[in-house]
């Protein structure tokens, strides 16, 4: 199905977003892998996460040529956009990245995920806003199915988190560019 690279700063929820995609893939019976960067860059520096959702067993867990790049900051965007496979997509948080993608052989999708989250009172949930937008644009999973996975991922002791995530997801899903 897809190899996905999510990249940004530590603290933006990159790893969480990746885990949601992998988790949905696993529950749908796909072969999946999730590999975080775990170096010193985790602490406030750049952070990224390789996600594979495939029909066949996953070979390398490290995504070097993604079908989909999700960029949450400018350094990550600049570092990785050239590696996206021809015909692939790049998702750009346009509230943090002012660049326009110059490549014509990939599709660039822009959403101000961070400011959308902030103005809606869901600061820190830009990652989930982005997930909503990714699911809508790529159709990797149906909305209902992904929402049910997202809901189930919240700890049972904190049902309010699930509610917040669903609201943030909806903002991204219904974002009209």
């Amino acid at each position: 199905m897809a190899s996905i690279l999510l990249a940004g700063f530590g603290g933006q929820g990159i790893l969480f977003a990746g885990k949601q995609l992998v988790s949905a893939g696993m529950n749908a019976g796909k072969e999946v892998s999730w590999l975080p960067s775990y170096g010193p860059e985790m602490r406030g520096g750049t952070c990224n996460c390789s996600v594979n959702i495939e029909d066949d067993p996953v070979g390398s867990p490290l995504v070097t040529e993604p079908d989909i790049l999700v960029a949450f900051n400018k350094p990550s965007y600049e570092k990785f956009y050239k590696s996206v496979k021809k015909g692939g997509r790049v998702f750009i948080d346009s509230s943090l990245i002012d660049s326009k993608c110059e490549r014509t052989d990939i599709t660039a999708e822009y959403i101000p995920a961070t400011s959308l989250a902030d103005i809606s009172g869901f600061a820190k949930l830009a990652n989930v806003v982005m997930l909503g937008y990714i699911i809508k644009k790529t159709g990797l999973f149906t909305k209902d199915y992904f929402v049910s996975c997202l809901k189930a991922s919240a700890p049972k002791s904190k049902p309010e988190l699930a509610e917040l995530n669903l609201k943030a997801f909806e903002i991204g899903y219904s974002y009209d560019d």
């Binding site: 885990k19 992998v22 696993m26 999946v32 892998s33 999730w34 590999l35 975080p36 775990y38 996953v58 867990p61 490290l62």
Partner: peptide, 10 residues
């Protein structure tokens, strides 16, 4: 190795 230790799979 570090990759197998750090990665998540089912």
């Amino acid at each position: 190795d570090g990759a197998l230790g750090q990665m998540m799979e089912p």
